[in-house]
Structure formats: structure tokens, C-alpha cells
Amino acid sequence: MPESIIFHASKGEGQKTVKVGATFTGDVYLDPISIDDKAAFANVTFTPCARTYWHTHEDGQVIRVLAGSGWICDKGSVPRRLKTGDTVWAPAGTTHWHGADENSIMTHWVVGLGKTIWHEAVTDEEYSKKG
């Protein structure tokens, strides 16, 4: 029988906070917890106005806001507010973006399931159409 895996709060060997950039706008920092072909677990911190590009998760994504406030937006919709304690389920195939508010950082714990498909950057106009 398989054994449960514990991901300790302290970083292990090779786990370092990294500044990410290629598929993000603004300053975003990633604390990887566990990443493989089936699932990626991480804490992600967005500075004010920072955000992901549009992206889609093959098998869905869970987001739990740990600190600050921000936004999430599904393609074809308007951005919706996120605040500390909120949890989001983006079903498989949902194209979306998420990021921090103008006046706040946002740190979230994220689980991406399956492959992540990255699309184009979220424009300033798309970011500013908040509901």
C-alpha cells in the first residue's frame, strides 16, 4: 500500500523561491512544493498588479488565497475579486488568469492538475475590466 507524503513547511533540498517571468506580467515569486507531470503544488506571490497570462489546465486547478487580495477571470467573463481565505476551482479546460489587486500583494497556494497550456498575456485593458 502506498504511503502518504508529507510536504514540510521548511524548504527541502533544491526547493528555492524563484522569480518567474515568461508567462506572467509583473513581479511574481514561486515557492515550489512538489512538481511533476501530473500535478504541481506551489505557493505563488504576486506583487500589486502582477498576474498570470491566460492559461488552461488539462485537468483543472485549485487556488486557495493565503494573503492579500486579487482577481480571477475566465475567458469571456469579467474579473472577480479574490480575498484571503477564498478557494477557487477552475475545471479542466477553463482558460483563465489570476493575479494581485492594484494595492495589494496576493499569495495563493495552487494545485495545477495535468499539463498547463499557456496563452497570450492579459492586457492592461483586460485587467482593468474588474467587476
Rank of each mutant, 00 (worst) to 15 (best):
P2M: 10
E3D: 04
E3T: 12
S4P: 11
S4R: 13
S4K: 14
I6H: 07
I6L: 09
I6V: 08
I6G: 06
H8I: 00
H8F: 04
H8A: 15
A9D: 09
S10W: 00
K11I: 00
G14M: 11
Q15N: 07
Q15K: 14
K16I: 02
K16V: 13
T17D: 15
T17P: 12
K19H: 09
K19T: 13
K19N: 14
T23A: 04
T23V: 10
F24Y: 14
F24C: 11
F24W: 15
T25S: 05
G26H: 06
D27S: 13
D27E: 10
L30D: 06
D31M: 02
P32K: 01
P32I: 01
I33M: 06
S34A: 07
S34F: 05
I35V: 02
I35L: 00
I35A: 01
D36Y: 04
K38I: 04
F41S: 03
A42D: 02
N43V: 00
V44T: 09
F46K: 00
T47F: 03
T47P: 00
P48H: 08
A50P: 07
A50T: 06
A50W: 04
R51W: 10
T52N: 15
T52F: 08
Y53F: 11
Y53Q: 03
W54H: 05
H55S: 13
H55G: 07
T56D: 04
E58V: 03
E58Y: 11
D59C: 10
D59L: 14
G60A: 11
Q61G: 14
R64T: 09
R64C: 07
R64I: 08
V65H: 15
V65I: 14
A67S: 08
A67L: 06
A67H: 09
G68T: 01
G68D: 05
G70C: 10
W71E: 12
C73E: 14
C73Q: 09
C73F: 02
K75E: 11
K75C: 01
K75P: 00
S77W: 00
V78K: 12
V78C: 00
P79S: 04
R80V: 10
R80I: 03
R81T: 15
K83L: 08
T84Q: 14
G85Q: 14
G85E: 14
D86Y: 12
D86T: 08
T87I: 10
T87P: 02
W89H: 15
W89R: 02
P91V: 03
A92M: 13
A92V: 13
G93C: 07
T94D: 06
T94V: 12
T95N: 06
T95A: 10
T95R: 12
W97M: 14
G99T: 06
A100H: 02
D101S: 09
D101K: 12
N103W: 03
N103Y: 12
S104Y: 06
S104I: 03
T107S: 11
H108A: 13
H108N: 07
V110W: 01
V110N: 02
V110G: 09
V111T: 15
G112Q: 13
L113H: 05
L113I: 06
G114F: 03
K115H: 10
T116M: 04
W118R: 15
H119L: 12
H119N: 11
H119D: 07
H119A: 05
H119R: 05
E120Q: 13
A121E: 08
A121P: 11
A121F: 01
V122M: 03
D124Q: 09
D124L: 15
E125G: 06
E125N: 13
E125M: 05
E126F: 08
S128G: 12
S128N: 12
K129S: 13
K130D: 01
